[in-house]
């Protein structure tokens, strides 16, 4: 089956689903207070308008800072951990424990320390993105082909040259994979803080819409964030694809 027919089938299925949903809501089988019809959700988009967009912008800005932090620190930490065998062996259980620790349990403490607002959101988002990137990069550095390293050393490469010419090019795919993974985690972390202790941002918007029983607006806002995060991930995937061709 051709690609176009697959896309057609996908679009048709979504439309049918929305149609059924609309019919069920119109027929009064579900309480519109909790499950609004798609038409009501669509009508809510312009009403949310600026508030939701400002919230989304705020969330994305925090996510961007958290993401930059987690990528820089994760790659740097991964390079250090991956290069020094003794460090890796000693620290491994700590890294695994911190990585595996459900971050939600420390969230109240972070909020106690840093208060409500932007800083805890950025920190919490960065923690979410940092560990997967750290672990992936450390593994990739460790697994860089030993022969390449020995040959470079034998030909008199300085440590700096070794990293710039051998190690870094070798770990590019892993860094990209980590960046693809990290963005969703960062966004997740930021949204959770905004829901738990937010005064701005999309998480806060979603929460207050739910508390105000504004179901159409809530569904519209949820759709907006979901679309934004899918767009970001697909964008990173496309970038990944292009960079891997370049390699």
């Amino acid at each position: 089956m051709s690609r176009r027919r697959i896309v057609g089938l996908q679009a048709a299925s979504v439309l049918v689903l929305l149609g059924i949903w609309e019919a069920v809501a119109r027929a009064g089988w579900v309480d519109p207070l909790f499950v609004p019809a798609p038409s009501a959700v669509a009508a809510a988009f312009p009403r949310m308008g600026r508030g939701a967009l400002a919230g989304l912008g705020d969330t994305l800005a925090k996510t961007a800072v958290a993401y930059a932090l987690s990528v820089v620190l994760g790659v740097a930490g991964g390079l250090v951990l991956g290069s020094a065998r003794i460090l890796r062996e000693v620290l491994n259980p700590f890294v695994v424990a911190l990585y595996g620790m459900p971050k939600i349990l420390v969230l109240p403490w972070i909020v106690l320390l840093l208060g409500f607002g932007t800083t805890p959101a950025i920190l919490y988002g960065a923690i979410h993105g940092f560990f997967p990137i750290l672990v992936l990069v450390a593994g990739a550095v460790r697994d860089v082909d030993r022969t390449l390293v020995s040959v470079a050393r034998a030909f008199g490469a300085s440590p700096w040259q070794l990293y710039a010419k051998v190690v870094l090019p070798a770990i590019v795919p892993t860094v990209l994979a980590g960046m693809r993974l990290g963005i969703v985690f960062c966004l997740l972390g930021v949204l959770i803080v905004e829901m738990f202790a937010g005064i701005r941002g999309m998480g806060h918007v979603l929460n207050s819409l739910a508390n105000g029983f504004q179901a159409p607006e809530l569904f519209a806002a949820t759709a907006l964030v979901s679309a934004a995060s899918i767009a970001i991930v697909l964008g990173l995937d496309a970038l990944n694809e292009r960079l891997s061709h370049w390699r």
Partner: peptide
């Protein structure tokens, strides 16, 4: 047809659904 849709939904940070579920 539907595998990519499931994969795309997986890319959404799941916590955005929670307020709707709570409502």
């Amino acid at each position: 047809a539907y595998g990519p849709i499931v994969a795309a939904l997986y890319a959404v940070p799941a916590v955005v659904w929670y307020p709707s579920l709570m409502l």
